[in-house]
């Protein structure tokens, strides 16, 4: 990632920004789908009932925490792997 000059770096940064936006939208829609699938299975009512709403709040909460934890561990492992160079990354 180094070896880019200033203008290349700017172009790279703007692409990363767009990518982040896209990733966020994907994460959002995956979250909706997961929590909908896991929490909403009863269609005898038209709007969400209490139980479903509680489930959805917990679902979002838990998944955010889980993905934060996975991210932490991932960064650690990735850094360790880069350092040992076992996958050719230098």
């Amino acid at each position: 990632m180094d070896g880019l000059n200033a203008s290349e770096q700017r172009e790279f940064a703007s692409r990363m920004e767009r990518k982040q936006m896209k990733e966020f939208m994907t994460m959002y829609s995956k979250m909706v789908q997961r929590c909908f699938d896991d929490c909403v299975n009863d269609f005898t009512t038209k709007s969400l009932i209490n139980r479903e709403e509680t489930c959805i709040m917990r679902c979002v909460d838990k998944n955010l925490k889980s993905s934060a934890r996975l991210n932490e561990r991932f960064q650690e492992q990735n850094a360790a792997m880069m350092q040992s160079g076992s996958m050719g990354g230098n």
């Binding site: 896991d38 909460d61 838990k62 889980s66």
Partner: peptide, 12 residues
């Protein structure tokens, strides 16, 4: 693999 789909609590 790790998160069961019955959300008993919001915390891990």
């Amino acid at each position: 693999k790790c998160i069961p789909a019955d959300y008993r609590e919001g915390d891990l």
